[in-house]
């Protein structure tokens, strides 16, 4: 458990310095743990666990947009789980549920192997439709069509810089829309 936390911290340090491969590995590594925790939290709140993927995606977006609040000298896992707990509570509250989130759901000592089945998420896809056209097109191109920034720039006759800006703004407004949905 300790080792896993150290590995995450090391990956996040590289990610902050601009290593996007390390960042990708880190997000891939934390996702099953976040999913298992979200499912436990939902089950405890008497909610259907198949909603967990929406929460996982909101957590990942928050991690991305708030990563400047992580102190690179501190371990990564407590920061991650604090965001995950916050997003779960927020999600339950938005649905008017009384919130009882057990801190242990996000404790460091989570079992490593969660249920293999990955339920579908829907909220990001729904909110994506309400984004300005340019942001939506760029996000869809990169997320759904797996195009690179370069290919996306060519496709829409934009500069790569403009694609990057649209991508970042799109992710930020997606997060706002999910929060206020």
């Amino acid at each position: 458990m300790r080792e896993r936390g150290d590995e995450w911290t090391a990956l996040m340090r590289s990610a902050i310095l601009g290593d996007s491969a390390a960042y990708h590995r880190l997000l891939k590594a934390v996702t099953p743990v976040l999913r298992a925790a979200a499912q436990r939290g939902l089950a405890r709140a008497g909610q259907p666990v198949d909603q967990s993927e929406d929460i996982v995606q909101e957590v990942l977006l928050a991690v991305h947009l708030k990563r400047h609040t992580w102190d690179a000298n501190a371990p990564f896992a407590p920061w991650l789980f604090a965001i995950a707990r916050n997003k779960l509570i927020d999600w339950l509250r938005r649905r008017g549920r009384r919130v009882f989130v057990n801190i242990d759901d996000f404790a460091d000592s989570l079992p490593g192997d969660p249920a293999p089945e990955i339920p579908a998420a829907s909220e990001v896809a729904v909110q994506l439709q309400s984004l300005p056209a340019r942001q939506r097109e760029v996000l869809q191109s990169i997320a759904v069509d797996s195009s690179s920034i370069k290919e996306t720039a060519a496709k829409f006759a934009m500069s790569e810089g403009a694609v990057r800006v649209a991508l970042h703004r799109g992710l930020a407004s997606l997060t706002t829309k999910l929060r206020d949905a």
Binding site: H64, V124, A143
Partner: peptide, 13 residues
């Protein structure tokens, strides 16, 4: 959007 797609997008940003 699948979570893997989202992760790829975040890493691309």
């Amino acid at each position: 959007m699948e979570t893997d797609q989202l992760i790829r997008t975040l890493a691309a940003d």
